Amino acid sequence: MEKVIEIKNLSKLYKNGRGISDINLDIHKGDIFGFLGPNGSGKTTTMKIMTGLIKPDSGDVKILGHSISEEFELAMEKVSCIIETAESYSYLTAFENLKQFSRYYKDIDNNRIEEVLELTGLLKYKDEKPKKFSLGMKQRLGIAAAILSKPEVIILDEPLNGLDVEGMIQMRNIIKDLAEKENTTFFISSHLIHDVELTCTSIGVLYNGRMLNVDSTKNILNSYASLENYFISEVERNGRI
Protein backbone atom coordinates (compact mmCIF):
# COMPACT_ATOMS: atom_id res chain seq x y z
CA MET A 1 0.00 0.00 0.00
CA GLU A 2 1.12 3.53 -0.79
CA LYS A 3 2.44 5.49 2.19
CA VAL A 4 0.86 8.92 2.34
CA ILE A 5 2.10 10.15 5.74
CA GLU A 6 5.46 9.10 7.20
CA ILE A 7 6.43 10.35 10.66
CA LYS A 8 9.97 9.51 11.71
CA ASN A 9 11.52 10.01 15.18
CA LEU A 10 9.45 13.14 15.80
CA SER A 11 10.12 14.97 19.07
CA LYS A 12 9.17 18.33 20.53
CA LEU A 13 9.67 19.23 24.19
CA TYR A 14 8.31 22.39 25.82
CA LYS A 15 9.73 24.15 28.89
CA ASN A 16 6.90 22.78 31.05
CA GLY A 17 8.04 19.24 30.24
CA ARG A 18 5.14 18.46 27.93
CA GLY A 19 5.42 17.60 24.27
CA ILE A 20 6.07 14.49 22.21
CA SER A 21 8.94 12.03 22.17
CA ASP A 22 10.17 9.88 19.28
CA ILE A 23 6.88 9.46 17.37
CA ASN A 24 7.04 6.99 14.46
CA LEU A 25 4.04 6.36 12.25
CA ASP A 26 3.11 5.32 8.70
CA ILE A 27 -0.35 6.01 7.26
CA HIS A 28 -1.46 4.58 3.93
CA LYS A 29 -3.67 5.88 1.15
CA GLY A 30 -7.37 5.76 1.97
CA ASP A 31 -6.81 5.16 5.70
CA ILE A 32 -8.91 6.93 8.31
CA PHE A 33 -6.33 7.14 11.06
CA GLY A 34 -7.49 7.98 14.57
CA PHE A 35 -4.97 9.70 16.84
CA LEU A 36 -6.39 8.80 20.23
CA GLY A 37 -5.32 10.26 23.54
CA PRO A 38 -6.44 12.44 26.45
CA ASN A 39 -6.15 16.23 26.43
CA GLY A 40 -2.52 17.25 26.83
CA SER A 41 -1.10 14.02 25.43
CA GLY A 42 0.58 15.73 22.46
CA LYS A 43 -1.94 15.23 19.65
CA THR A 44 -2.22 18.88 18.66
CA THR A 45 1.55 19.39 18.96
CA THR A 46 2.09 16.55 16.48
CA MET A 47 -0.50 17.95 14.06
CA LYS A 48 0.96 21.45 14.28
CA ILE A 49 4.35 20.04 13.31
CA MET A 50 2.74 18.08 10.45
CA THR A 51 1.22 21.26 9.06
CA GLY A 52 4.25 23.51 9.56
CA LEU A 53 2.79 25.62 12.37
CA ILE A 54 5.67 24.74 14.71
CA LYS A 55 9.08 23.16 14.20
CA PRO A 56 10.14 19.89 15.82
CA ASP A 57 13.23 19.53 17.95
CA SER A 58 14.13 16.46 15.90
CA GLY A 59 12.65 14.10 13.35
CA ASP A 60 10.64 14.77 10.22
CA VAL A 61 7.28 14.28 8.54
CA LYS A 62 6.77 13.36 4.90
CA ILE A 63 3.41 13.86 3.23
CA LEU A 64 2.92 12.36 -0.24
CA GLY A 65 6.67 11.77 -0.34
CA HIS A 66 7.70 15.35 0.46
CA SER A 67 9.41 16.49 3.66
CA ILE A 68 7.63 19.28 5.52
CA SER A 69 11.00 20.70 6.59
CA GLU A 70 12.63 20.64 3.16
CA GLU A 71 9.73 20.80 0.65
CA PHE A 72 6.93 22.40 2.62
CA GLU A 73 4.91 23.75 -0.30
CA LEU A 74 5.01 20.43 -2.15
CA ALA A 75 4.19 18.52 1.04
CA MET A 76 1.12 20.66 1.72
CA GLU A 77 -0.05 21.10 -1.87
CA LYS A 78 -2.76 18.43 -1.64
CA VAL A 79 -3.43 18.69 2.10
CA SER A 80 -6.28 20.37 3.94
CA CYS A 81 -6.54 20.77 7.70
CA ILE A 82 -8.35 22.14 10.72
CA ILE A 83 -6.12 22.57 13.75
CA GLU A 84 -7.77 23.37 17.12
CA THR A 85 -10.66 25.56 15.89
CA ALA A 86 -12.45 26.15 12.60
CA GLU A 87 -12.03 29.84 11.82
CA SER A 88 -14.15 31.93 9.43
CA TYR A 89 -14.83 35.55 8.55
CA SER A 90 -17.71 36.61 10.80
CA TYR A 91 -18.78 39.48 8.49
CA LEU A 92 -19.16 37.18 5.44
CA THR A 93 -21.95 34.69 4.84
CA ALA A 94 -21.25 30.95 4.81
CA PHE A 95 -21.27 30.99 1.00
CA GLU A 96 -19.02 34.07 0.86
CA ASN A 97 -16.57 32.45 3.26
CA LEU A 98 -16.21 29.44 1.00
CA LYS A 99 -15.99 31.73 -2.04
CA GLN A 100 -13.09 33.50 -0.34
CA PHE A 101 -11.38 30.19 0.49
CA SER A 102 -11.91 28.99 -3.10
CA ARG A 103 -9.52 31.68 -4.33
CA TYR A 104 -6.61 29.68 -2.92
CA TYR A 105 -7.36 26.82 -5.31
CA LYS A 106 -7.87 26.19 -9.00
CA ASP A 107 -11.20 25.36 -10.62
CA ILE A 108 -13.52 25.77 -7.61
CA ASP A 109 -16.83 27.11 -8.93
CA ASN A 110 -20.11 28.03 -7.25
CA ASN A 111 -21.51 24.55 -7.90
CA ARG A 112 -18.70 22.99 -5.85
CA ILE A 113 -19.31 25.48 -3.04
CA GLU A 114 -23.01 24.59 -2.92
CA GLU A 115 -22.10 20.89 -3.10
CA VAL A 116 -19.99 21.03 0.07
CA LEU A 117 -22.59 23.18 1.82
CA GLU A 118 -25.16 20.50 1.00
CA LEU A 119 -22.83 17.73 2.21
CA THR A 120 -22.32 19.44 5.56
CA GLY A 121 -25.97 20.40 6.05
CA LEU A 122 -25.40 24.13 5.65
CA LEU A 123 -26.95 24.87 2.26
CA LYS A 124 -30.11 26.36 3.76
CA TYR A 125 -27.93 28.64 5.89
CA LYS A 126 -25.62 29.72 3.06
CA ASP A 127 -26.70 33.38 3.24
CA GLU A 128 -26.29 33.62 7.02
CA LYS A 129 -23.15 34.88 8.76
CA PRO A 130 -21.09 32.59 11.04
CA LYS A 131 -21.34 35.06 13.93
CA LYS A 132 -24.90 33.77 14.33
CA PHE A 133 -23.86 30.11 14.10
CA SER A 134 -23.67 27.66 16.97
CA LEU A 135 -20.32 25.98 17.69
CA GLY A 136 -21.48 22.91 15.77
CA MET A 137 -22.48 24.96 12.73
CA LYS A 138 -19.12 26.74 12.76
CA GLN A 139 -17.48 23.32 12.84
CA ARG A 140 -19.56 22.22 9.84
CA LEU A 141 -18.44 25.31 7.92
CA GLY A 142 -14.84 24.45 8.76
CA ILE A 143 -15.32 20.91 7.43
CA ALA A 144 -16.91 22.35 4.27
CA ALA A 145 -13.82 24.53 3.76
CA ALA A 146 -11.52 21.56 4.43
CA ILE A 147 -13.08 19.37 1.73
CA LEU A 148 -13.68 22.20 -0.76
CA SER A 149 -10.60 21.55 -2.92
CA LYS A 150 -10.96 17.74 -2.92
CA PRO A 151 -7.61 17.27 -1.12
CA GLU A 152 -5.84 13.92 -1.04
CA VAL A 153 -5.02 14.27 2.68
CA ILE A 154 -7.24 15.84 5.34
CA ILE A 155 -5.90 16.52 8.85
CA LEU A 156 -8.59 17.21 11.44
CA ASP A 157 -8.08 18.15 15.09
CA GLU A 158 -11.22 17.20 17.08
CA PRO A 159 -13.56 17.44 14.03
CA LEU A 160 -16.70 16.42 15.95
CA ASN A 161 -16.27 19.15 18.55
CA GLY A 162 -19.57 20.91 19.27
CA LEU A 163 -21.70 18.73 16.99
CA ASP A 164 -24.96 17.21 18.13
CA VAL A 165 -25.67 13.50 17.57
CA GLU A 166 -27.11 14.08 14.11
CA GLY A 167 -24.14 16.22 13.14
CA MET A 168 -21.67 13.60 14.39
CA ILE A 169 -23.33 10.89 12.33
CA GLN A 170 -23.35 13.13 9.27
CA MET A 171 -19.65 14.01 9.65
CA ARG A 172 -18.71 10.36 10.12
CA ASN A 173 -20.57 9.48 6.94
CA ILE A 174 -18.83 12.26 4.99
CA ILE A 175 -15.40 11.08 6.18
CA LYS A 176 -16.14 7.43 5.38
CA ASP A 177 -17.58 8.25 1.95
CA LEU A 178 -14.56 10.35 0.95
CA ALA A 179 -12.15 7.63 2.09
CA GLU A 180 -14.07 4.91 0.27
CA LYS A 181 -15.09 6.69 -2.93
CA GLU A 182 -12.19 9.13 -3.47
CA ASN A 183 -9.44 7.32 -1.53
CA THR A 184 -8.94 10.39 0.63
CA THR A 185 -6.58 9.82 3.55
CA PHE A 186 -7.65 11.18 6.95
CA PHE A 187 -5.57 11.93 10.04
CA ILE A 188 -8.02 12.62 12.85
CA SER A 189 -7.22 13.43 16.46
CA SER A 190 -9.75 12.95 19.23
CA HIS A 191 -10.20 12.14 22.89
CA LEU A 192 -13.74 10.83 22.15
CA ILE A 193 -13.11 7.08 22.16
CA HIS A 194 -16.55 6.01 20.93
CA ASP A 195 -16.42 8.31 17.91
CA VAL A 196 -12.92 7.13 16.98
CA GLU A 197 -14.11 3.52 17.18
CA LEU A 198 -17.04 4.24 14.82
CA THR A 199 -15.07 6.34 12.35
CA CYS A 200 -11.48 5.18 12.01
CA THR A 201 -9.92 2.21 10.20
CA SER A 202 -6.69 2.35 12.20
CA ILE A 203 -5.81 3.80 15.57
CA GLY A 204 -2.72 5.07 17.35
CA VAL A 205 -2.73 5.58 21.11
CA LEU A 206 -0.76 8.59 22.32
CA TYR A 207 -0.18 9.02 26.05
CA ASN A 208 2.11 11.51 27.82
CA GLY A 209 3.74 12.35 24.50
CA ARG A 210 4.60 8.75 23.59
CA MET A 211 3.02 6.50 20.99
CA LEU A 212 1.98 3.37 22.85
CA ASN A 213 0.70 1.29 19.95
CA VAL A 214 -0.80 1.39 16.44
CA ASP A 215 -3.23 -1.18 15.07
CA SER A 216 -6.25 -1.55 12.82
CA THR A 217 -9.65 -1.02 14.39
CA LYS A 218 -10.68 -4.45 13.15
CA ASN A 219 -7.79 -6.17 14.94
CA ILE A 220 -8.44 -4.23 18.12
CA LEU A 221 -12.14 -5.11 18.24
CA ASN A 222 -11.34 -8.75 17.52
CA SER A 223 -9.38 -8.82 20.77
CA TYR A 224 -11.23 -6.34 22.98
CA ALA A 225 -14.90 -5.66 23.73
CA SER A 226 -14.45 -1.99 22.89
CA LEU A 227 -11.84 0.59 22.00
CA GLU A 228 -12.12 1.93 25.54
CA ASN A 229 -11.04 -1.43 26.95
CA TYR A 230 -8.12 -1.50 24.52
CA PHE A 231 -7.06 2.03 25.47
CA ILE A 232 -7.11 1.25 29.19
CA SER A 233 -5.19 -1.98 28.58
CA GLU A 234 -2.49 -0.20 26.57
CA VAL A 235 -2.09 2.54 29.15
CA GLU A 236 -1.91 0.06 32.04
CA ARG A 237 0.49 -2.22 30.16
CA ASN A 238 2.85 0.71 29.67
CA GLY A 239 2.74 1.56 33.37
CA ARG A 240 0.92 4.89 33.09
CA ILE A 241 -2.07 4.20 35.36
Rank of each mutant, 00 (worst) to 15 (best):
K129E: 15
K129D: 11
P130W: 13
P130N: 10
P130D: 05
P130M: 12
K131E: 14
K131Y: 15
K132L: 10
K132I: 03
F133V: 05
S134D: 13
L135D: 03
G136V: 01
M137K: 06
M137I: 06
M137H: 00
K138N: 13
K138A: 11
I143N: 05
I143L: 10
I143S: 02
A146Y: 10
I147S: 07
S149E: 08
S149R: 11
K150A: 13
K150E: 11
P151G: 07
E152L: 13
E152G: 09
I155P: 04
D157L: 06
D157M: 07
E158H: 02
P159C: 04
G162N: 07
L163Y: 11
L163P: 02
E166R: 09
M168D: 06
M168K: 12
M168V: 15
I169Q: 13
I169W: 12
Q170T: 15
N173E: 15
K176D: 10
E180W: 11
K181D: 13
T184D: 11
T185W: 11
F186C: 02
S189I: 08
S190P: 09
S190E: 08
L192T: 05
L192H: 06
I193S: 10
V196K: 05
V196L: 03
E197Q: 13
E197D: 12
L198G: 04
L198C: 09
C200E: 00
C200V: 01
I203A: 01
I203K: 01
G204D: 07
Y207G: 04
N208T: 04
G209E: 07
G209I: 13
L212C: 02
V214K: 15
